[in-house]
Design a protein around this nucleic acid. Structure first.
Lengths: 186, 186
DNA sequence: TAAGAATATAGCAAAATGATATATAAGGAT
DNA sequence: ATCCTTATATATCATTTTGCTATATTCTTA
């Protein structure tokens, strides 16, 4: 059985150096949560599993009187991580509730359609601003790629804002109505 | 407790008319799977739950000698669906393994980077072609919106293909290498 | 007429989420 | 000094979801 993506992300985070479960969660929250998230409920059991399989080793430390378990990649773990890096990635999966609602938009009244799209665009703009405020996590390694991914995210949200903006214009030009059964668009 | 998105999608599918669990899965696979998917393991238990809550009613039918349970929205179910349609949608969640790999791209050799990005662009192009071949499911209601969503999908994948294309050009111009610790991009 | 594709439902292990619980340390406010 | 909040750190658990397998019938096509 091959590792899951989250299992490999954890190996990847440890490739930056030894980290605690809490720190791994922080790396993921700060740099990858908007394109691949993981919760404590995944991270801690996976760290245990990785240790059982010899992919990571751990050491109980005391830092300022506080108990802390630090995990580290083993050579075997690094090999597994490297192998995964060369595999063809899984296709993207998206869960986009607004697109689902679009499927059933015919049920809404024209004014409700305009309001929904306007609110959604506001949400997208807010999220894009949050992205723009993120500073890359890793100081040295992978710094260029951290910035690259942020660039990707900003471009993705720009695309969404633009696309829904055009749709909103169309709705407004038709007072919230759209051609029924129109066979072509633009 | 409010319904989950999948629970609402099922109500939405039934808003097009009475359907069996199998037909609901087909609607989702054919029209929304690339932005919100659901498996039989979700659909059948949810239909039962909806019936227990009085949101749908069902009838056991025999069609060409084949057993079939047809589900239908109740007025209560339609109200729940309508209420959900007016709520602010949840933010998009994305699971994009290629973006994760980008995080750790510094570990790859220049040639490996170029190969990975090339392969990914091929995947994206293939998927976009599949999208272009989809014909909207609903014949009458929501036809415009089915096409709109397909338009959105095609634009989204065009954006991804373009973005990774630019990145590939950059990699090739630097023989797979990228500036380390560069503070700005472009 | 036999293979295989499509229709139809059911069940389950594994994975993931989201939430809660617990506890300590650090920092600022009153 | 004491209180409150935030950050660090780990653990657990019910619910949801996925992906897979099993089962059975009918329709299509070679």
């Amino acid at each position: 059985m091959s590792n899951t993506t989250v299992e490999n992300i954890i190996l990847g985070c440890l490739s930056f150096g030894p980290r605690s479960g809490y720190e791994i969660k922080k790396i993921i929250s700060m740099s990858s949560s908007w394109f691949y998230n993981a919760s404590y409920g995944s991270i801690y059991p996976i760290l245990k599993k990785h240790e059982d399989n010899g992919l990571v080793s751990s050491e109980e430390t005391v830092d300022n009187g506080r108990y802390k378990r630090i995990y580290q990649l083993t050579p075997k773990g690094y090999k597994v991580f490297e192998k995964w890096m060369l595999e063809s990635p899984k296709l993207m999966t998206v869960k986009y509730e607004m697109a689902v609602k679009l499927m059933f938009f015919a049920h809404l009244k024209p004014g409700q359609r305009i309001k929904q799209v306007e609110q959604h665009i506001e949400q997208l703009i807010l999220f894009k601003q949050e992205l723009e405020e993120i500073e890359p996590y890793a100081a040295s390694e992978g710094d260029f790629y951290q910035r690259l991914i942020l660039d990707w995210g900003e471009n993705l949200y720009s695309f969404l804002i633009e696309w829904f903006g055009k749709f909103l214009d169309e709705l407004k030009n038709n007072s919230g109505d759209v051609p029924i059964n129109s066979k072509t668009r633009e």
